[in-house]
Simulated scan of single mutants.
Amino acid sequence: MVEITTAEPEKFWDPIPGSLVSARGVELKGPWGHVFGPLDLDIDEGGVTVIAGQAGAARTALLMALCGRMRLTGGSLTVFGHVNRPAKVFAQSAIACLNELDEVRPSVTVRDMVTEQLRWDSAWYKLVPRVHEDAVERMCAEVFGDVPLPALNAFVDDLPEISQLLLRIAVANTRRPPLLVVGRTDRIADDDERLVFLERLVALGERQSVVTADVNPVPPGVGVRGTVDLRGLLGAGDVGVMTEGR
């Protein structure tokens, strides 16, 4: 007698209205040891949520896990109603400003970055020529807002820090998925530029759920929807997995 079995259906949570992420006992262990966890956290849908915690491998790994770029080793992570299904979350999210994923070489120009992304977004059989200023404006205007757009032939490495980060967001966010994860907020040294950067994320949060991280307090009145305080719970992490900003 042959026993016929069917694949176990995907388990869904009973979502709280307006909830985007629910994590219970999530943890990550790398080849060389413990990275973070176990942690519990909840993130509401819409607007900007800041994860407050020390910069390092643990924080980077958590951000990557929230958008389906890293598989956890323990606990339950529910995003968009998908329980422990990183591939499902990957398809509905974008991530920017993490050197482990989108670091830009010094020799790359603004034109190079925009052209390459348009080629990735186009069908394989379409020829996409090198772009001009109008393509940079179409891709970047919403993200940059009142911040001046970068010059077409400028080297990305020569741009102000805030322009570099906004450009990386614009390139990563062309599909406008429901979830946008942004790292490196606390790498902006100038307080005024950091405030402008957060304001640009808040503007994007009117159409997407935006999650970022910062070791510094969030300035009052900037419009950030919520803060998840993981200070003391996210250490430097396992440097054998990854290191942030090195």
Rank of each mutant, 00 (worst) to 15 (best):
V224I: 15
V181H: 05
R246L: 12
V210N: 04
T49I: 04
V147I: 15
R119E: 15
G235E: 09
A87T: 11
M139D: 07
T227V: 15
A96Q: 05
V114P: 03
G183I: 11
V171A: 14
I16W: 01
V228D: 02
A52N: 00
A123S: 11
A213H: 06
G47P: 08
N84L: 07
V222W: 09
E193Y: 13
P220R: 13
G56Y: 14
D186K: 02
V50P: 01
T60F: 01
M1I: 05
S163V: 12
L167N: 05
D238A: 07
T60V: 02
R207K: 13
D229P: 00
I51S: 03
D214G: 00
T6D: 09
G37V: 12
D112K: 01
V21F: 02
R187Y: 07
K88T: 01
D157H: 10
T109C: 11
L233P: 00
R59Y: 08
S122D: 14
G25I: 13
V131M: 03
V48L: 00
T243S: 13
L28A: 08
V50L: 00
V50D: 02
R200Y: 00
N153E: 15
A96W: 03
G226H: 14
R225P: 07
L195E: 11
E3S: 08
L41S: 03
G221K: 13
G183R: 04
S209E: 02
A135C: 06
F80H: 07
K88N: 07
P15C: 02
T73Q: 10
T78F: 03
P220E: 15
G68S: 00
L39S: 06
G46F: 02
P9S: 10
V21E: 01
E8A: 13
V228W: 05
R130L: 15
K11Q: 13
D102E: 07
D214W: 05
L39I: 14
K29R: 13
A203V: 10
E100K: 12
D14M: 06
Y125E: 14
A7D: 15
K88P: 00
R175F: 06
S122A: 15
F197H: 08
D44V: 09
V210I: 14
T185D: 04
L127S: 14
R176Q: 12
V114H: 01
V202E: 08
G68R: 01
R231G: 05
Q208C: 08
E206N: 09
L72A: 10
D134K: 11
T109D: 09
C97D: 09
V239C: 07
L204W: 10
S163K: 10
